[in-house]
Structures are given as structure tokens and as C-alpha cells.
Simulated assay, not measured.
Amino acid sequence: MKSFEVYRNIRKRAMIWGLPVSLFALMIIAVVGSLLVIIFSFSLGAVICVFIFNCTLYIGLTRLTSNPQVFQVSRVFPETISSKRLSNFHYEQD
């Protein structure tokens, strides 16, 4: 009889094949588009190019999932909000 482990990490993101649901949907759309390319232009070169493209897309998306800091350039909000002057320049008349 097959045994299943209890899923206790309900607050974590849902993952399908190691990808979040949105990136998995992107990969499936690319696979469907690749199938259309293979169907309408059937050649060995097209099949090989589409296979390589799908493999590199999957590898790239899994690496992006494991290292999400790649696209995070800066924070949206500052850590503190202050009305203190940031520079030492005085713009008043002497």
C-alpha cells in the first residue's frame, strides 16, 4: 500500500515541478507554443531547437526560483522615513 506524507507547510508557495504556479503556467504556455511550431513547420532542426529552448527555459526558471534576488534591484520603501536634511548644503543667503 502506498503511503503519503502529510503536507504541513501550507503557508509556503504552491509548487509544481519545482516552480511556483505562475512560472509553471509560463512554461506550459511556452510548451504549447513549441508544439504549434513543431506541428506547422515540421523539421528535425525545429524539433531540436524547440527542445533546447524548453530545456533552457525550465532550467532558467528553476534557478530564478531558487535565487529570487537576481531581479530585486532595490527596495520599494525606505527603512525609515525622516524629514532630516540628507545633505550638508545650505541654500540660504549668507
Rank of each mutant, 00 (worst) to 15 (best):
T80L: 05
V32M: 14
D94F: 05
L86S: 06
G33W: 03
R85G: 02
V31T: 05
P20N: 14
V21M: 11
R8F: 06
S41L: 01
A30Q: 04
Q72F: 07
I16T: 15
S82K: 06
I39W: 07
I10M: 06
V32H: 03
G18R: 02
G45K: 12
V70D: 03
M15G: 00
V32Q: 09
F40E: 13
V37K: 09
I38A: 07
I39N: 11
R11C: 11
R13I: 06
F77A: 04
Q69T: 09
Y7M: 13
F77V: 04
F24Y: 15
F71N: 10
V6W: 04
I39R: 15
L64M: 09
N67K: 15
V21T: 13
S22E: 15
R8G: 05
Y91E: 00
R13S: 12
I39C: 03
Y58V: 11
I59C: 04
F4D: 08
I38G: 02
F51D: 00
I39A: 14
N67D: 10
Y91T: 00
V21L: 13
I39P: 00
P20A: 01
M27I: 04
G45V: 01
V50Y: 00
A30R: 06
G18A: 01
S34L: 01
R63S: 03
A46T: 12
I39H: 03
R8M: 09
C49L: 14
T65E: 14
A14Q: 06
Y7D: 05
E79Q: 14
S22N: 13
A25H: 09
D94W: 05
F4H: 12
A46C: 02
M15K: 06
N9K: 09
V76M: 04
F4P: 00
C55R: 07
K2N: 07
S87H: 03
T62S: 04
I28C: 06
S83M: 06
L23H: 14
V76T: 11
A30L: 15
L23N: 13
L23F: 12
Y58L: 13
L61S: 10
M1K: 11
V50H: 02
M27T: 05
V31G: 05
V32T: 10
L57E: 01
S82V: 14
E79I: 08
S41I: 04
Q69F: 08
V47P: 01
E5A: 10
D94A: 13
S41M: 05
M27H: 15
S3W: 08
L86A: 10
S82R: 06
V31N: 03
N88I: 02
C55Y: 15
F53Q: 01
G45Q: 04
I16D: 03
K84T: 12
F24M: 09
V21A: 05
W17P: 00
F71T: 09
K2F: 08
I29K: 06
